[in-house]
């Protein structure tokens, strides 16, 4: 088994005639926090949904733990041990917080460890325990994001993919959420995070990819990447425009 838990090789995704992702490759090392950086519309979310099987890639392959999962349904892919924390709006807002978490451990493997996982999640996010009987539509933006991450942890995954981690959140809350991620990461869970907050992504991640207009333009250990150049790419300045 290679040291990479997830490998996406030469993925291309199209919506009709529009090519959202072109020939993008990405590797996530086991136990790492890997960041995927890019401006709005760079194709990050599309790439993630192709990895998760929500969109069929037109070309390329996805491997999870060296098993090919290209084109499988999302419900099958998550059974392999990837969990996704989609953008905050993607929680079950007609269900209570606890029911949301229960949906997290829907798969039999995780359901067996239900109590243990609840304990873990509630100690990480005490606010969710406080609100466990409330409908999740009453949560604040930050709490929704925490719920999404907590729900992913409930699946007892080897790897968590977070989409638009800090979208619409206050800076304090963002910091708190990143701290929690590092905490979870220390217990051996691999992370692939997508965020618009370039500074924090680079700060907290081990390795980063930068995406512009559907293709990868830069990658490297996060501490080595020149932040100014990443920002240029992000904002579409000079050579990346």
């Amino acid at each position: 088994m290679s040291e990479y838990i997830l490998r996406a090789e030469n993925l291309s995704v199209s919506y009709g005639d529009f090519r959202a992702v072109t020939n993008a490759s990405l590797k996530v090392k086991e136990g790492s926090i890997t960041a995927l950086i890019g401006a709005n519309g760079a194709g990050k979310s599309t790439l993630l949904s192709a990895i998760m099987g929500e969109h069929k890639p037109t070309e390329g392959h996805v491997f999870f733990e060296d098993r090919e999962v290209t084109g499988l349904k999302p419900s099958v892919i998550v059974r392999n041990g990837i969990a996704m924390a989609p953008e905050g709006s993607c929680i079950f807002d007609e269900m209570t917080v606890r029911e949301n978490l229960l949906m997290g451990c829907y798969q039999k493997r995780a359901a067996a460890k239900k109590n243990e996982l609840f304990e873990k999640v509630y100690s990480l996010f005490p606010i969710l325990k406080e609100k466990e009987k409330q409908l999740s539509s009453f949560l604040s933006g930050g709490q929704r994001q925490m719920l999404a991450i907590a729900r992913a942890i409930m699946a007892d995954p080897k790897m968590i993919i977070c989409d638009e981690l800090s979208l619409g959140l206050a800076p304090v809350v963002i910091g708190e959420i990143y701290e929690k991620l590092t905490e979870i990461n220390k217990e051996g869970v691999t992370f692939l995070i997508v965020d618009q907050d370039v500074g924090r992504s680079l700060e907290y991640s081990d390795y980063s990819y930068v995406m512009v207009k559907g293709g990868m333009v830069m990658e490297g250990p996060s501490c080595d990447l020149p932040i100014e150049e990443v920002k240029d790419a992000y904002f579409g300045i000079n050579k990346y425009a």
Partner: peptide, 21 residues
């Protein structure tokens, strides 16, 4: 558990699929 999964599918198809439903 199944009742919850059914409600989840009604509530948010994408999220339910991502939970493995």
């Amino acid at each position: 558990r199944m009742g919850r999964a059914i409600r989840a599918s009604a509530n948010n198809v994408r999220a339910a699929e991502l939970m493995g439903v």
